[in-house]
C-alpha cells in the first residue's frame, strides 16, 4: 500500500499538517506555507525525507502545519539545530523557517555563521518587519521612524538589510520573495532547495495585525522582479550588493545572487564523503584504531 502511494505523484495535500495554521486571516505566512508544500510535492521529495525546523514566533509555528519531520526549537536557534541535523544525516532535506526577529535579532549570530559554513539547507525568513507573537514590537528589520509598542515615538535605529548582510557573510544563494507572489516565490523555493549550499530567501510576509506600515499594498507598489531585467546577472556579487541596497520607491525581489563553486559543509567534510549518513553508522570503533588511541598514551 505504502509503495503504491509513493509511485503516485505527490501533491501539496500530501504535505498537509496535523492541524491547520492558526495565523491571523490574511497573514503573509499562508503564502509561504502553501508555496513550500507545492514545491516539495512538485520535486517529489517524500515527507519523511524532509525536516522542517523553526525557532519561535508566529512564522516559526510552520513545522506544525506541514507534514514532514519537524522541529519547533528555541527562539533564534533553528539554524544551529538544523546544522546538527544536516551533519548527522546529510541525506535529509533540511528547511528552516522563521521570522525576522528570530533570525536577525536573537539568532543573528547563528545566521552569519551558518552562512559562512555554507550548510546545505534552505532558510526561508518570513520577514514582516515586526514582532507579531509578542503583539507588536520593533524588529531588527523595522524601518527607521516606525512606531510600535516598544518604540512608541518611532524607531531611532537603522534596520538590518538581510540581503546585503547575507551577501557580506558569504551566502551562496540569496533571494527575496513576496508572499503575495506565490508563483515567483515557489520558483525561488525550488531553486533554493536545488542549490547545494546555504540558500537564503527573505520573504516579505505582511503582518496584517501589527504592521500597518509595510502592508500588501505598500509592497505591491514598490516591488520589482529582478527576473524582469534581462541584463541582471545573478553571479555578479557586486551587482547583487548594489541591488540589495535598493530600498524605497523600488524594492527588488528575486534571486540576487548564486554561486555554485563552493562546497557545502558536508561536502567539505571528508568523514561524510562515503558511506551512510552518521546517524546510520556503526557505533563501535575498529579494535586496531582503539589500539592506536591507547598506544599514544603509553
Amino acid at each position: 500500500m505504502a509503495t503504491v502511494l509513493q509511485l503516485q505523484p505527490l501533491t501539496a495535500a500530501d504535505f498537509k499538517g496535523k492541524v491547520d495554521p492558526d495565523w491571523c486571516p490574511g497573514c503573509g505566512d499562508f503564502g509561504v506555507l502553501s508555496s513550500l508544500q507545492k514545491v516539495l510535492a512538485e520535486m517529489n521529495i517524500l515527507p519523511h525525507n524532509v525536516v522542517t525546523i523553526s525557532g519561535i514566533g508566529c512564522s516559526s509555528n510552520l513545522p506544525g502545519f506541514i507534514d514532514t519531520y519537524g522541529m519547533h526549537t528555541l527562539h533564534g536557534r533553528a539554524l544551529a539545530v538544523a546544522t546538527g541535523v544536516k551533519m548527522a544525516n546529510h541525506k535529509l532535506n533540511v528547511v528552516v523557517t522563521g521570522g525576522d526577529g528570530d533570525g536577525f535579532g536573537i539568532g543573528g549570530n547563528h545566521f552569519i555563521h551558518t552562512i559562512r559554513r555554507n550548510v546545505d539547507l534552505l532558510y526561508v525568513a518570513m520577514d514582516n518587519q515586526i514582532y507579531g507573537l509578542t503583539t507588536g514590537q520593533t524588529s531588527p528589520t523595522s524601518r527607521k521612524g516606525m512606531k510600535t509598542k516598544s518604540m512608541p515615538y518611532g524607531n531611532v535605529e537603522e534596520p538590518i538589510n538581510p540581503i546585503t548582510l547575507a551577501l557580506a557573510a558569504g551566502a551562496t544563494f540569496v533571494a527575496r520573495g513576496f508572499s503575495a507572489e506565490p508563483k515567483h516565490l515557489a520558483n525561488l523555493i525550488k531553486q533554493g532547495l536545488e542549490h547545494k549550499g546555504f540558500s537564503f530567501i527573505d520573504v516579505f510576509s505582511p503582518c496584517v495585525t501589527y504592521n500597518h506600515d509595510n502592508t500588501y499594498a505598500w509592497f505591491r507598489e514598490r516591488i520589482k522582479k529582478l527576473e524582469d531585467d534581462v541584463s541582471y546577472d545573478s553571479s555578479d556579487w557586486h551587482e547583487a550588493m548594489k541591488r540589495g541596497l535598493l530600498w524605497g520607491d523600488e524594492i527588488p525581489i528575486g534571486k540576487f545572487f548564486q554561486r555554485t563553486d563552493l562546497p557545502s559543509l558536508h561536502e567539505a567534510e571528508p568523514l561524510l564523503d562515503q558511506g551512510e549518513p552518521l546517524a546510520h553508522r556503526e557505533l563501535r570503533i575498529a579494535p586496531e584504531i582503539v589500539r592506536n588511541f591507547i598506544t599514544e598514551l603509553m
Partner: peptide
C-alpha cells in the same frame, strides 16, 4: 569517525548537538 565542529558560541554548541542527536 566522529564529526567535530567548533561553533560560534555555546548556545550554538548545545543546539547543534541536540539537532544531531535528534537526527539519530
Amino acid at each position: 569517525g566522529i564529526l567535530v565542529r567548533q561553533v560560534e558560541d555555546e548556545i550554538g554548541v548545545i543546539n547543534m548537538a541536540i539537532g544531531a542527536a535528534h537526527a539519530g
